[in-house]
Amino acid sequence: MDGELFPERVAWRPGPVITGHVVRLMEGYSREVRVGQPVLVAVLGTAAVVRVVLALFASMLRAGAGAGARRKWKELRKGPEFLVTPLRLRDGSGVLCEMEIHGHLPQSALEPADHVQVTVRSQKDAGLAPRVERIVNLTTGQLLTPRTPTLWSHLGPALLLQAAVGLLLIGALVAWLALAG
C-alpha cells in the first residue's frame, strides 16, 4: 500500500507511560502560553505603586524618572511562545502513537529507532495529542525533560520584584492606616 495515499492511523494513548521506538520527530511549530488577565492586572497594579513612588522621589530630587524599557499591556497579555514538536513512536504492540513535546530538546537527543520510555499527560484541550512530560532514552541512557516558559518567566524578574515591593508598600500603608485610625 502507498503510505501517502493511505497513511497509517495514529493513536493518542493516554499513558501515563508508553514504551516504544521513535518513528519520527515531525516539524516543530510555536504555540502561545495563555496569560490570565486577573493575574496580569494584579502584578501590573502592584508594580505601578512602586513606579509612582519612584517617580515622586525622582521629581523631588529633580533627577528625572528613568522609566526604562517598559513592555506594553498587549505584549504582556499575548504570552510567551514555546516550541511544539509532534513525536511519533511505535509502542510494544505495534500501534503508532503520537504525542507533543513542549519546549526545546537537544538536537541529537532523539533519533529514529531509539528505544524510549515516555511519560505523557492529557492536555486540557481534548483535541490535542497528549503532552510529553519526560522521556527516558533507553538507547542512550539520557533522561530528557522538556521545559516550557511560564507566566512568571514571561513577566520577568524586574516586574515581579516591583510587584512584590508594591505589595509590601500597600500592606505597610494599610497597616499604618489601621493603627492610625
Rank of each mutant, 00 (worst) to 15 (best):
T150F: 10
R71L: 09
H104S: 10
D114L: 15
G79Q: 05
P112W: 05
T150M: 09
R9D: 02
E111W: 12
V23L: 02
R34F: 04
L25C: 14
K78F: 11
A164C: 12
S122Q: 00
A109I: 11
A172D: 03
L169R: 03
E75V: 05
M60H: 11
V174S: 14
L54Q: 12
H115C: 12
A158G: 11
V10L: 09
I101D: 00
W12T: 07
K124L: 01
P14D: 15
K74D: 08
G28N: 07
M1Q: 13
G36E: 03
V41A: 12
T139R: 02
A47F: 04
S59N: 10
L169V: 08
R131F: 01
I18G: 08
R13N: 14
G141E: 02
L167A: 15
G66N: 12
D2Q: 12
R88C: 08
M60D: 10
V136R: 01
V41M: 10
R88N: 06
G141V: 01
F82Y: 10
P130F: 04
H21I: 14
A126R: 02
V50D: 07
G156K: 08
A11W: 07
P146D: 03
R24E: 13
L105H: 00
R51T: 05
P157E: 12
L173G: 15
L54I: 06
L169K: 04
A126H: 00
A163R: 05
G92H: 04
G45I: 04
L5Y: 05
P14N: 15
L177S: 06
G68R: 01
R131T: 00
A55Q: 11
A164E: 02
M99H: 01
D2P: 14
G68F: 01
L96D: 03
R70T: 11
